[in-house]
């Protein structure tokens, strides 16, 4: 009986739920995209940056990776407004997740770049490539292939962490479902439904990642 009830409840509130799903997808994609861009820069600095800049960025990544995402979200929402940066809950949440994502991607990119043998850079330099040409043609393509699986993992973590935005009132999937539960008390069924949708989103990301991995695999 509860299953039918739950399905009815979901159907009756489908637009609210779809809004929630759409918000979750927006938050996740934005944070992953911006966090990855920023993360590549962070990784570059960690690998090749001047020692002084490197130390600052090192502290940045260690601090962000050592802080619960939950705390980051609260900090971005409450502290930023105190210092005069007025962000909506959505913006503050995306900002927090972007920082979190960038610290992880930065560390992954650093590892990927440092794993490339020195001979690759030397070979590129010996045919007259400048550092940036070497980076974009030789180092980055190899590093990206290597970090892809770990990066996909980080992306799925961001999707899961997006649920924490409910605490500052962003109506993403989890909060939209919670609002329905508070009216219908179908907690088991609806939480299960929410979990299933999160699984589907991450499943799609992982499948997409595998597909790209196969596409760009180096023949050997």
């Amino acid at each position: 009986m509860e299953i039918t009830q739950a399905l009815n409840a979901i159907w009756a509130t489908r637009f609210a739920i779809l809004d929630g799903i759409w918000n979750t997808i927006q938050i996740s994609l934005l944070s992953i995209f911006l966090g990855t861009l920023l993360g590549v820069v962070v990784g570059l600095i960690l690998t090749y940056g001047h020692i002084a800049v490197r130390v600052v960025i090192r502290i940045y990544t260690d601090f962000l990776r050592g802080t619960p995402v939950f705390v980051l979200i609260l900090a971005c929402f409450y502290i930023l407004s105190v210092i005069g940066v007025d962000l909506s809950a959505f913006q503050a949440g995306v900002f927090a997740l972007t920082l979190f994502c960038s610290s992880h991607v930065g560390e992954i990119v650093r590892g990927g770049l440092q794993a490339i043998p020195k001979g690759q850079t030397e070979a590129a330099m010996s045919i007259g490539l400048t550092f940036s040409e070497t980076f974009f043609s030789v180092l980055l393509p190899q590093a990206l292939r290597q970090i892809l699986p770990t990066w996909v993992n980080t992306a799925t973590e961001i999707v899961k962490a997006s649920t924490l935005l409910s605490i500052i009132g962003v109506v993403e999937l989890l909060l939209s479902v919670q609002q329905i539960i508070s009216r219908t008390f179908l907690s088991l069924e609806l939480y299960f439904f929410a979990g299933f949708v999160f699984f589907l989103i991450n499943f799609a990301i992982e499948k997409g990642g595998r597909y790209i991995e196969r596409k760009v695999a180096i023949p050997n």
Binding site: Q120, A123, S126, S137, V138, P141, Q142
Partner: peptide
């Protein structure tokens, strides 16, 4: 080079 250092990709 001794280890060729071709670009593997």
């Amino acid at each position: 080079f001794q280890h060729f250092n071709l670009f593997p990709h």
